[in-house]
Design a protein around this nucleic acid. Structure first.
Lengths: 226, 226
DNA sequence: GATAATAGTATTGTCGACAATATGACAAGC
DNA sequence: GCTTGTCATATTGTCGACAATACTATTATC
């Protein structure tokens, strides 16, 4: 029997998850100023593990540290979104290529199962924020399928920012951000046999997502820079 | 006038650079076991900033942390190399695309200048390890040219591992690892006008690099796993 | 002799206090 | 009025000590 690694032993990991959740869910709005002292008091931990957790969030772009001034929750600017989408497109295309060259049918049916679960949750419509998280996990699963650890790591790094944006988006328009049909398409793509077509479709898919996103962004208040 | 930001104020940053240098240069061999206490004594700093530095190196894959056992300098396995090269190829192709769509002629001539400097240093042949570092910087410069911060970050994360391997390689065979003509080609590529050709050449270029590398690896002692 | 309990040791995880640093307000001088 | 120096304050950076944890060797027991 293989044991699932218990992920939560240390406080540092717990803090990372707590803080990420707070930011990504929008509970702490973009642009907010935080300080280590205040956080350590509120979270009930000392600053040592807190600082290590913060570094991690800074490294994934969710927080910006301005030494001796404070920590700021990073907003998602237009430019950030463009970069996020372009890098993401490149990474997912690569993931597709890797999956395609492996052709692991069993894993692909697992993908179906996961997709099914996502659809259920989303259609019930109870927990839109949770649905976004599930969508992220769906993509993560594809990366894991590729068996490419470095690639997966790269995705995991930009994922929180993406999730952050989707949640913002979701709150602003109280409509399901990510589209169900898009997921159908995505899963179908991942299972496709014509690689070139898959890549082209993915690219178009992403560009559409970005376009829709940018359009909505234009009607929002200008998001926080840096 | 725009001032360069002084990068070295804190100890954490200093430790990161010191440790990275020690590992990447091969002064601390792959597989070595390190402990926080020992390191803090040797480096003359307390464990607080040291731990933060260590996290960073773990995150970039140079160290592996085994809680309550120690820190281990990560070797570069065959599989690691494949992943490193494939991800790198994807990222550099993307960087090329971005640069190409910008067409910043001034910046491209800067690239020439940097290349010139690299050639000088390498041809003198005094400091092979330094030459590797210069090569890394040459690539970094291309990424910066792309103006894509996220992409550049992704590169900066895998760069230390790559540099690590090149240095290992260099020491093992005491021959210039990276090839000068390859740089010529690379710079020429970056300045090219036919994007599709550029991408194809880059891919071939990378595959050749990986092939040569794997061949040499086969003759080495099997590098440390995990 | 083999096995399980146990104490000892090495290592990381965490904490509270202190030092260093940057910032902003305010006063002094030109 | 504008600059410049100084000082108080807020914040991060660092430290040394202690607690928790996991590994190891030893011992006791069957």
């Amino acid at each position: 029997m293989k044991l699932e690694r218990l992920t939560d032993s240390t406080r540092r990991e717990h803090i990372v998850r707590s803080l990420r959740e707070l930011i990504v869910s929008g509970a702490v709005p973009a642009g907010s100023r935080l300080t280590e002292t205040q956080l350590s008091a509120e979270l009930g931990v000392s600053r040592a593990p807190l600082r290590e957790a913060i570094r991690e969030l800074v490294s994934s772009g969710l927080l910006v540290s301005q030494p001796y001034k404070g920590l700021f929750v990073r907003g998602v600017s237009r430019r950030d979104l463009e970069e996020l989408y372009s890098l993401r497109t490149t990474l997912e295309q690569m993931a597709f290529r890797e999956c395609w060259s492996r052709r692991d049918d069993e894993a692909l049916s697992d993908l179906d199962a996961r997709h099914e679960k996502l659809v259920e949750t989303t259609e019930r419509g109870e927990d839109p924020v949770g649905a976004i998280e599930l969508e992220m996990k769906l993509h993560s699963w594809c990366y894991e399928l590729s068996g490419h650890r470095l690639l997966t790591d790269a995705w995991e790094r930009i994922m929180p920012s993406l999730q952050f944006y989707f949640t913002l988006h979701q709150r602003a328009h109280s409509r399901p951000g990510p589209r169900l049909d898009a997921h159908e398409t995505y899963v179908a793509l991942a299972k496709g046999s014509d690689l070139a077509a898959m890549l082209a479709h993915l690219e178009e898919h992403m560009q559409q997502g970005l376009a829709r996103t940018m359009q909505l962004l234009r009607s929002d208040a200008e998001p926080t820079e840096t």
